[in-house]
Design a protein around this nucleic acid. Structure first.
Lengths: 130, 130
DNA sequence: ATATATAGTTACCTCATGGATAGTGATGAC
DNA sequence: GTCATCACTATCCATGAGGTAACTATATAT
């Protein structure tokens, strides 16, 4: 893909026309990555998710799941019983996204050390730079 | 890569130990994607970047470039002349990141339509769902 | 003397994200 | 009657990312 030239520059154009923006915006959300990872192995109930995602509040869990559902990445199934039972699972699209997350993780595992090194060099600053 | 089980759950653990967090955090920044794309074709001066990235303010341009420089993705070269001349270019690591951005764009181009469809379905809501 | 060009700073303000906390509804167990 | 369970929902509030606008320094050109 070398068609970078047609890419919109300027943030407004980027947001309106570049598909990457949609995805990046999702991934920027604090819990999306974790929720998708948690669901990779199969369907889970709300409570199971809440326990698995240590530190998440019910509000953020629901909010995240609603966004994911709206975007077609997660399927929500409600069992009309009492007490309530609700299960969540990745759709095909969601599993596909998990694949992208693997690519990102793979890149990160390869290169995060370089970034950390650069940060360390920048932090200790010029006392080391002759 | 199937080693999802060792992945930290809970946001704090994620942040401290998962390399993906470092990268995702970067990509969440509003201008990083655009700046890296702008520099893909070669080095540019500050003013050239400012003109290319329609809508960016000098503050955000500098801020973004400083972060990228600190993380070893961008090299900054200062020419001691007046008026000042400063050029920026991607490091090898930065070009590598551009590769990841291409993967993300590729995925996005393939699947963003599905996401948009899902959103449209969610918006018009249940009046269409029998 | 004044204007211009370049590459930034600096101070201030706004608004969205997300955290904290408490409340809701329905039913079966005790 | 009331307590527990489960899956939320509602409300308020703090933090920080990012926007706005004005200011800086220096040498050359006029």
């Amino acid at each position: 893909m070398d068609s970078d030239d047609q890419s919109p520059f300027g943030y407004d154009a980027f947001r309106r026309t570049c598909p990457s923006h949609t995805v990046l915006e999702m991934l920027a959300s604090k819990w999306v990555y974790l929720v998708v990872c948690a669901l990779r192995r199969g369907r889970l109930r709300n409570g199971e998710l809440a326990r698995k995602l240590e530190g998440i509040t019910p509000k953020m869990l629901t909010q995240t799941l609603r966004v994911l559902e709206r975007d077609g990445l997660v399927r929500r199934e409600v069992f009309p019983v009492i007490p309530p039972r609700v299960e969540y699972e990745l759709t095909e699209l969601g599993q596909n996204l998990a694949g992208l997350l693997n690519q990102i993780r793979s890149w990160s595992e390869q290169h995060a050390p370089d970034i950390k090194d650069a940060r360390a060099r920048a932090e200790h600053g010029r006392d080391l730079v002759a």
